[in-house]
């Protein structure tokens, strides 16, 4: 074999190294979100006006709905991976599929929120309130998209009955990433709410 794909010959050690790598990757991503949130908070505190500014809508209720959906998807993912750990395959497959559906619904709701606000005069380049909303939700949505794709790939393979070691690793890494996206969204949502509080 010309190439060493992994220097780990023991699958357990390979998985452990992969999980550790994913943890570090998540720490990196956390710094990205932390930077964005900190920047928004600093600018918000320096702005003496009210958010939303006159003529712009409040944060939509659809954001609360999407929050509930994403937290639920994290819970279903947890049920699914726990089922896999005790080799309960039907339960694992069921909850994994539910997770994928919830993930797609989350993206649809976020898209609806954007469409809704754009229609109500929330113009990206008019005020930093609008900028903050679109930038933070957009940043998060891009990362969700980056999670849905591997989630879709592993779910498809699982539905075909493939439970090989690479698929199991894929499920494990995607789950970690997904829980991070969930936590990041909750913090982002709270940041958006905090922005609208009185100074």
């Amino acid at each position: 074999m010309a190439n060493i794909v992994s220097p780990f010959e023991d699958p357990e050690r390979r998985l452990a190294a992969g999980r550790f790598g994913m943890l570090i990757f998540i720490a990196s991503l956390a710094m990205i979100f932390a930077g964005a949130i900190l920047g928004v908070l600093v600018v918000r505190l320096e702005d003496e006006g009210t958010w939303p500014p006159p003529g712009m809508p409040q944060l939509p209720w659809s954001l609360l709905a999407s929050t509930v959906i994403l937290v639920a998807s994290s819970a279903t993912f947890l049920r699914s991976t726990r089922a896999l750990r005790r080799e309960d395959r039907p339960v694992f497959v069921r909850w994994l599929t539910v997770t994928l559906v919830l993930a797609l619904v989350f993206l649809v709701v976020q898209a609806y929120a954007w469409w809704d606000l754009l229609g109500r005069g929330m113009d990206f380049s008019r005020h930093l309130y609008a900028w903050t909303f679109y930038f933070l939700t957009g940043l998060h949505a891009v990362h969700v998209l980056g999670g849905v794709i591997p989630l879709w790939i592993v779910t498809r393979r699982v539905l075909r009955g493939d439970l090989s070691a690479p698929v199991r690793r894929g499920v494990a890494y995607t789950a970690m990433y997904w829980h991070f996206l969930d936590a990041a969204w909750v913090v982002l949502y709270l940041t958006l709410i905090a922005g609208t509080l009185e100074r």
């Binding site: 990196s28 710094m31 979100f33 932390a34 930077g35 964005a36 600093v42 930093l128 900028w131």
Partner: peptide, 23 residues
């Protein structure tokens, strides 16, 4: 731990240059 902060900063810089609004 530090490079991602440069990443988000540069991303905001690009957005600001394109749309002429940003932090």
């Amino acid at each position: 731990l530090a490079t991602p902060v440069l990443g988000i900063t540069l991303l905001m810089l690009i957005v600001e240059r394109v749309f002429q609004i940003g932090l």
